[in-house]
Each structure stands twice: as C-alpha cells, then as structure tokens.
Design a protein around this nucleic acid. Structure first.
Lengths: 145, 145
DNA sequence: CCGACATATGAATAGATGCTCATATATGGA
DNA sequence: TCCATATATGAGCATCTATTCATATGTCGG
C-alpha cells in the first residue's frame, strides 16, 4: 500500500521482514519516545538525581537544597528549572523563599526503580554510599543557627 | 566530629540547618547517584529508547532492528554498545547474525513506568503515536521476501 | 583461501549540556 | 523608596554526545 519506493531507506536488508513488521506495529512511536527521552535526560545527571532524591525525602527551599547537596545557588536554580519545565517538581512561594517538591509519585517511583537496579549491580560498593553525616560542606550540628 | 572548618563550602546559608542535616543523613550518596545517572543517560536518547522498546517486544538481530526503526547499521551498533556496556541488553550469536534482547526486566519496568507517566501528560498527542504500519522505510508487506 | 554478508569500531563533526559569573527579578523590612 | 535577601536567568566556556563515513573483525559458502 503505502510508499514502497523507499523500501531500503536505511540500506539495511531485513532478515525477517515479518518480525520487523510485527515489531513496528506495536511500537509506541517517535513522539512518545522523544517525550520520554526528555524525562530520562532530566534524570541522567547525578546532581539532578540527588536533587530529586532530596526532594523525595521532603520539601526544601532552594538554599537548603543547595546547602544539603553542596551546590551553588545558581547551579541549583538552573537544575530546578530543568525539572520544573518537565513538570517533575512543583514549587510554592513562602515569602522570599521558594519551596520545591516532587510533582507526583511517578518520578519517585522511577528513581526508586532505578536505584533498585543499581543496588543489584553494586553489592559492595553500595556500602560506601551513605557517608557519615555530611555529604558536602554542610553545617555540622552547629554550623548556622 | 568530622571536618567542620568548611561549613559554608557552597556559600549558601541554610535556612533550616536541621532539615538540611536530616536530608543529608538519608541521602544515598554520590556513588549510587552517578551509577544511576549513567543508566538514565542510556535511556535519555529517543533512538535508544525505541531500541529498548523494540527489544522489549522480542529478540532482534541488528539488521532487523535497524530496519524496524529506520536506522543505519553503524548507528544501531553504536547504540547497542552503549546499552551493552551498561548491561541493559544481552546478545547471542547465531552464525553471522547477533541477536539482542533486554538483559532483565528492570529496564523494561523503567521504560514502562516512564511511558505511563508520559501517557498521563499527553492525552491526545499520544493518539498520533502509533502510526499506520510503517515507522521508517520498512519492507511493506512484500518489500523483501 | 576468497568473496559476500553481518556486525563492530575509530575518527571527525555538529549540536547539546553543565557549570560559573554577572545580573535581573521579587519579596520583606526600615 | 532604598537596602538586604532569595531566587531566576542569560552569556560564555569546556565538555560530552549522536551521527556519519570509513574500515576492521568475524562468519559462512564456495
């Protein structure tokens, strides 16, 4: 039916055309793939992942988030914008502060699911993960008060 | 205990030091975050996502995969290497052909979970997703046989 | 062993991305 | 209104990444 002139667009001859067609018929399509890729891209940066993990624990304002992860204010804000644009986080103002939180549980589940996979592959290296008490240059007990 | 000299490493004053410490204590740590980021990075490309989706449907050799998605042989191979390096796909030889498949269900679940999220956000645009019968330049019914 | 086919890989290039510095916006208090 | 604080944003730079082209490796049939 369709075109047919452009059979070998990709110059690759199919070994099993039936299988090829079967797969194509079930594929979701470029559009959704691109949208999904954007979401995974947002999670493809370790810094942003840590932000997501922190926000999964509790709502945080930008400065506390920066402090907790040892990031610059600017960098934190840029990352938050990325997450915001994809509606992965939501925010609310409280005076001059802006509190961020995960927008829904989907991302949290994605994160959890991924972590589960990682844990299986890093049996021992995971041990070194949860460091003592500080992860960056945080106020340790009496830093700021 | 620990260092303490470097309190304001990030130059950002914490609003609620207690909350900051609480979050830090529960964080997984850079290491796991980086590993996880690598995995999400592998899924952050729409082409690779389509490869994953195709392989989730059924095992495919490189040429059929290329044909199904309309990709060049070289490009397909490069992407497969990326996925292979992260142990997201496994492969087996069958003569000159090499068949690829997802390595475990973790990735499939990640993909499915992500797609679920996307579907919620794209109620109507999703309709245009599953195109007629061809997605690339595939053999249409009698192309190669 | 040789030619054909399937896959893998290296190099080169164009485009995307994270980080930092400087600055803009917004809110609250004097 | 003016200043201080909290956050957002734009520009510039160094780095990474996807894609393509050329070529290498590996397997089968003769």
């Amino acid at each position: 039916m369709i075109v047919m002139e452009e059979l070998d667009t990709c110059e690759v001859p199919a070994v099993d055309p039936q299988r090829v067609r079967r797969v194509q018929a079930k594929m979701t399509g470029e559009l959704a793939a691109q949208r999904l890729a954007e979401i995974f891209a947002a999670l493809s940066d370790s810094t942003r992942l840590r932000i997501v993990e922190a926000l999964a624990l509790e709502e945080l304002c930008v400065c506390d988030l920066s402090a907790a992860l040892g990031l610059s204010q600017s960098g934190t804000s840029h990352h938050l914008r990325t997450l915001r644009n994809l509606r992965l986080v939501k925010h609310r103002r409280a005076g001059r502060l802006v509190y961020y939180a995960l927008d829904d549980e989907h991302i949290q589940r994605l994160f959890a699911q991924g972590l589960e996979h990682v844990r299986e592959e890093m049996p021992r290296s995971l041990r070194a993960a949860n460091e003592p008490g500080r992860a960056a240059g945080l106020p340790s007990e009496d830093g700021a008060r």
